[in-house]
């Protein structure tokens, strides 16, 4: 059952891009769109967008990199441990909770570290894996998405994104414990 589900979903993920390309170009040609010219014209826009997000990315990645390399995250983890155990979150996963909203590769790093220290199928490592999937790099997404169109006042976007991440990660800890351990 699980195997079939896994095979089916990975087939969908593997073939989605070529199938979408084929459908879009076929329908475009059928409807009389000059597919090549239109594609190139649209692609120019993608180049502009990528260049426009560089300053925002520099700001976010520098700030996050400084915090991580200064050892600040380790200190916060030690201080908050007892509170986390009390609400049902393995304290070993705190670096994941703190890093995930800021850096996707940082979160992967935390996950790999937990798997090495506690074992790949241990409660902390599995919980961290579920947490990673249940949240996103909110700081990065906000910086890139708002940066690309020049929005400076983001109103409640950070609160909504971070609260969603926090609840997603809390639920991840509880779901992992309830369903897998």
């Amino acid at each position: 059952m699980m195997e079939t589900f896994r095979a089916a979903t990975s087939l969908v993920a593997d073939s989605a891009i070529p199938v979408v390309l084929a459908i879009v170009f076929a329908v475009g040609a059928w409807r009389g769109v000059k597919v090549y010219d239109t594609f190139v014209e649209g692609a120019k826009e993608g180049f502009d967008t990528a260049v426009r997000i560089i300053p925002y990315l520099v700001a976010v990645l520098v700030a996050v990199g400084m915090v991580r390399s200064a050892g600040l995250l380790d200190r916060v983890s030690q201080a908050l441990g007892p509170l986390l155990s009390w609400i049902g979150v393995p304290p070993e996963t705190l670096p994941m909770v703190l890093v995930r909203p800021m850096s996707g590769s940082g979160a992967d790093g935390v996950m790999v570290e937990l798997m090495k220290v506690h074992g790949p199928d241990s409660l902390p490592a599995t919980t961290a894996a579920v947490m990673s999937g249940a949240s996103d790099t909110t700081f990065y997404v906000l910086a890139v998405y708002f940066g690309s169109i020049g929005i400076e006042r983001i109103r409640h976007a950070l609160w909504a994104g971070l609260l969603g991440d926090l609840v997603g990660m809390l639920a991840a800890a509880w779901m992992t414990h309830a369903l897998l351990f």
Binding site: V24, G42, T49
Partner: peptide, 9 residues
């Protein structure tokens, strides 16, 4: 660039 191109089509 690939996706903005495809999306334009």
């Amino acid at each position: 660039a690939l996706w903005t191109g495809v999306m334009r089509v």
